[in-house]
């Protein structure tokens, strides 16, 4: 089935190539327009790459802090023979909250 589909594609025809090129040129023009609009909306002194990298770094730090804090909370819960949710509630944190 795959072969028949593959064979049906007009790869080697110049007309088909011209048609695909025309479609891709239209798509590229649309992408360029969208890119310009997004650049107009982007209002930050930092570059988009910097913003994305900082966000990823913050996410890694958040994961580390949360894991360590939960480990200590677990130790406390074991010492006091309580549930982790109870310990977190005592600390003023909603257990289901992120």
């Amino acid at each position: 089935m795959y072969r028949s589909q593959f064979k049906s594609l007009p790869f080697s025809t110049p007309e088909a190539s011209k048609k695909r090129i025309a479609e891709k040129e239209v798509k590229l023009a649309q992408l360029k327009l969208q890119f310009e609009q997004l650049l107009e909306q982007y209002k930050s002194s930092e570059s988009p790459e910097t913003v994305v990298k900082r966000h990823v770094t913050d996410l890694n730090r958040y994961n580390g802090v949360r894991d360590a804090a939960l480990a200590m909370v677990t130790m406390i819960a074991e010492q006091r023979s309580l549930r982790i949710a109870d310990v977190l509630t005592e600390m003023g944190v909603e257990p289901n909250e992120e």
Partner: peptide, 30 residues
């Protein structure tokens, strides 16, 4: 020649799609 120009168009489209995705993510984080 047609295949060469088509490959060039593919590269350009990929480049613009990556840039648009990056700016969109940055806008969302901000």
């Amino acid at each position: 020649d047609l295949r060469r120009s088509e490959a060039f168009l593919d590269v350009e489209i990929k480049k613009y799609e990556d840039q648009i995705g990056l700016i969109t993510r940055a806008n969302r984080y901000l």
